[in-house]
Design a protein around this nucleic acid. Structure first.
Length: 258
DNA sequence: GTAATTGTTCTAGC
DNA sequence: CGCTAGAACAATTA
């Protein structure tokens, strides 16, 4: 989880709940991954108004007035919860925001890998929803690795992880084991469209299912990347294998290009 | 008890 | 040097 659709919905929900409010207090319970001393973070954003929250690749960005930005990567198990001033801290708490009206939220991660970053640097790779069709084709054309690994490589393309790469490739009817450079031009165009439509549809469905809450895993919305079903939406038998040590779900409906 | 799960980063190897 | 494969991280869940 914590791929593009999840982060997009988190960003929208956070903006809806907290934009325009002044941050009274940021408490960091686990500072190991923070790139600056806690005192510097407090000095940079406490007392400032939150403009909005955006999704940036697989990270969130909290934009404050005076152009301070707090980036947040939820990594594998990071999660968000709405809290109020004075609530007990959760187990595995990473940090908490409390706004002037007493509302706030907490970031939790049992694996302690969630990473807050003050004023994070810009990424060099394009976002999965912003890359142009021609650039996407050029990217695949020069990669001899498996197409699934290319889609998941944040240095090449930002936003897609292990779960949605499976759904996107199934939607495009391309095997995840296909060599990226061997996929014909016409099929690359299909993959490009599938990438956009799967991510956008998932974002829409997640937003609807989440309402005002921060819903994490929503496996029942996935097409093939799940172990509780045996068949794809069109009836193909779902198979399981590993790519790069990651669980990969696919069917024989998908064509292998080598 | 055992295996799977997840993203990123680092190291080993060719 | 460029690329790929695999380990490591850590804890919860099936």
């Amino acid at each position: 989880m914590a791929e593009l659709p999840d982060l997009a919905v988190f960003a929208a929900t956070l903006t809806r709940k907290f934009a325009g409010k002044t941050l009274d207090d940021v408490e960091v319970k686990h500072a190991k991954k923070l790139n600056v001393p806690v005192a510097e973070l407090k000095a940079s954003i406490e007392g400032q108004k939150l403009k909005h929250v955006s999704r940036y690749g697989k990270t969130l960005r909290f934009h404050f007035v005076a152009n301070q930005i707090l980036g947040l990567h939820l990594m594998l198990r990071g999660d968000l919860f709405a809290v109020k001033k004075g609530d007990d801290y959760m187990k595995s708490s990473i940090l908490r925001f409390v706004f002037a009206d007493g509302d706030g939220f907490e970031v939790r991660d049992p694996l302690k890998q969630a990473t807050p970053t003050l004023n994070p640097p810009d990424a060099k790779s394009p976002d999965a929803l912003e890359i142009e069709k021609e650039d996407f084709a050029a990217l695949l054309a020069k990669k001899k690795g498996k197409v699934k690994e290319v889609l998941m490589d944040q240095k090449l393309l930002r936003g897609i992880g292990n779960s949605y790469s499976d759904d996107i490739l199934w939607h495009a009817k391309i095997s995840p084991f296909s060599i990226a450079a061997a996929i014909p031009e016409k099929e690359v165009a299909v993959l490009y469209k599938s990438m956009k439509s799967v991510l956008e549809q998932a974002t829409k469905d997640l937003a609807e299912a989440s309402g005002d809450d921060f819903k994490g895993e929503f496996r029942e919305l996935m097409l093939v990347h799940r172990k509780d079903i045996e068949h794809s939406p069109t009836g193909g038998t779902i198979k399981y294998d590993q790519i790069g040590g990651r669980g990969t779900y696919f069917t024989d409906e998908q064509i292998l290009y080598k």
